[in-house]
Amino acid sequence: MSNGVAVSIQRTVKITVNGSEFTAPEGSTILQACRSEGLEIPTLCYLENLTPVNTCRLCMVEVQGSRTLVPSCSRKIEPGMVVNTESDRVQASRKMVLELLASSVDMSIVSDELSEWMERHQVDKERFGPQALPAQLGERETTHAGHHVRGDGTLAATVFEPVKIDNDQYVRDYSRCVLCYRCVEACGTDAQNTFAIALGGRGFEAHITTEYDVPLPESACVYCGNCVAVCPTNALMFKIEHDMRQAQTWDESRQTLTRTICPYCGVGCNLEIHAQDNKIVKVTSPLDHDVTSGMLCVKGRFGFEFINS
């Protein structure tokens, strides 16, 4: 029985980064090319299996001949391109982007990698003054586009607001939302195509929302949890994790991570079982497996309670 595997031929492009020359596959982004060479560039909104939206502006690098810095996550390499990922301009921009974010958003639960970048750049979240208190629930969502009330500038405006809990599977804590668009992309054409959420409002009041901010159970949400899976700042959090964190019983050092296969339909989705004290506390899927690309459905993501009971 013969079989087949698709093969493709890849051309390469030569570029110079931080003074050293190397080649990378044609069509790569600056970020991909740099990462394949082991060069570090911080990212926040970028996720390898979503379309780059280049909104966080953390991955900006200097490209010779370009008036402004360019987003490495989405700019494709060109022959002879000269890139600097560590110049003073780049460092200054990086630090400010992180400080603007940290001053306005609760970034207390982010990846170790991002925490390290914040430390490295000595990010001071109070650099623009003490942080403003949370808004009332629904206040930010109903602010009319193009209008705001000017304060006295002594408190740095924030996106803080109460946590939204409207179903048993995941919570939305938009105080932690950096507007990376990842959840919208995962809910949209990049994966789930359910389109339950979108960007609403404008400017600093822009926010992720259902239509008219209706609770999730009234929305188109199908609880695949893919938005939660891609959220980089834990603005979206599984309810079990949220409750355990509230009860201070969430302890990643006591958790095991085991890869297995979903017990439901015959597609064979890879699951990563996060277990603590012999209970499943979270289910994710590996981003780099081409069956799921990190995405699951409601059964695979949440349908494990029968095993915990």
């Binding site: 179903n167 599977q169 199908v222 609880y223 409601v298 349908g303 494990f304 309670e305 029968f306 095993i307």
Partner: peptide, 11 residues
């Protein structure tokens, strides 16, 4: 439903 009945599905 022996497996799926176990979780509280909002759907």
């Amino acid at each position: 439903g022996v497996q799926s009945g176990g979780f509280s599905s909002p759907l």
